[in-house]
Amino acid sequence: MRKLPVILGLLLLLCVFFPACEVENCPPNSMSYAYFSLVDQNGRSFSTSDTITIVGQTHANIVVYDTLTDGSLRPRTVDSLISDTLVNREAGAKSFELPLSYNTSTQFVFSYHSLERMFAGRDTISITHRNIPYFFNLDCSSMMFYEVTGVTSTHHRLDSLTITNPNIDNNEKENFKIYFTVIASDE
């Protein structure tokens, strides 16, 4: 009986000093975001004076079932546009981090709201990309990385758009520069 507390004490010490073999080394950030920097025509960072709302859009094929007169179901595929507000009236922004869809293309609609005018304009940025699934560890969830293959945009308020780094992963780094023509103010 005197040996039982000693044996239990040794087992407890072993459990404390030797954790299980399965130690989760998952990355703290498993989401991949496209990082957009807002710059003026000279490439200098600036804050917008307008408030910006950004809506993400992607296309999805949805299967709809029609009921026929004999009671059977007939499937048909409908193309659908899925939209979600990602940024709502952000004021004084210098950059944005936006998620991409799991489809091969993602579209962002930038709506600019100015204090002088009720509605000041809208630009659309379309990004085509290749999805790269990434598995870090079996205990961790899978991650989706992206390789940007192309980008187009409208030019209502934004001047141009460049790809600075086409590889989008879970490291926070600049991927796009959005150029605006900014009128210099007297200081």
Rank of each mutant, 00 (worst) to 15 (best):
E172Y: 12
F176G: 00
N170S: 08
L12I: 10
D84S: 09
V109I: 07
Y146Q: 04
S49Y: 04
M31E: 14
Y112I: 00
L4Q: 11
V6N: 05
S47W: 01
A60Y: 12
C140R: 01
G92E: 02
A60L: 08
P5K: 03
L100H: 03
S142L: 10
I163N: 00
E172Q: 14
D123G: 00
C15R: 13
V23N: 13
T77S: 09
S126Q: 09
F136L: 13
P166R: 09
T51R: 13
I178M: 10
L8A: 12
S47C: 02
Y134S: 10
L12E: 03
I7L: 14
T162M: 05
N131V: 14
L12Y: 09
D50T: 04
C140Y: 00
K177R: 14
C140W: 02
Y65D: 09
H113P: 01
S37L: 11
T58S: 11
N171F: 15
T77P: 02
M143V: 03
S160R: 07
N29A: 14
S80K: 09
R76C: 05
N88Q: 10
I62D: 08
I132C: 08
Y102D: 13
L158K: 00
T154P: 01
D123H: 00
P75C: 09
N103P: 04
S72E: 06
S80W: 11
M1Q: 13
V87L: 10
D169H: 08
R117W: 05
I163D: 02
H156N: 11
N42P: 04
L38G: 03
R89L: 03
N103D: 12
G71Y: 04
E97K: 11
D79N: 15
T58K: 12
H156G: 06
T85L: 06
Y146T: 01
V151H: 02
S32R: 04
N137F: 00
M144V: 12
T164A: 06
P166V: 00
Y102A: 12
F135Y: 08
R130Y: 08
G121M: 01
C15T: 12
T51Y: 05
I62H: 12
P27S: 03
D159M: 06
I125E: 00
F145V: 03
S47D: 07
T149W: 05
T128F: 05
D139H: 11
A34M: 10
D84W: 10
E187N: 13
C15V: 13
L38Y: 04
Y179T: 04
C26V: 02
E90C: 07
R117A: 07
L13Q: 08
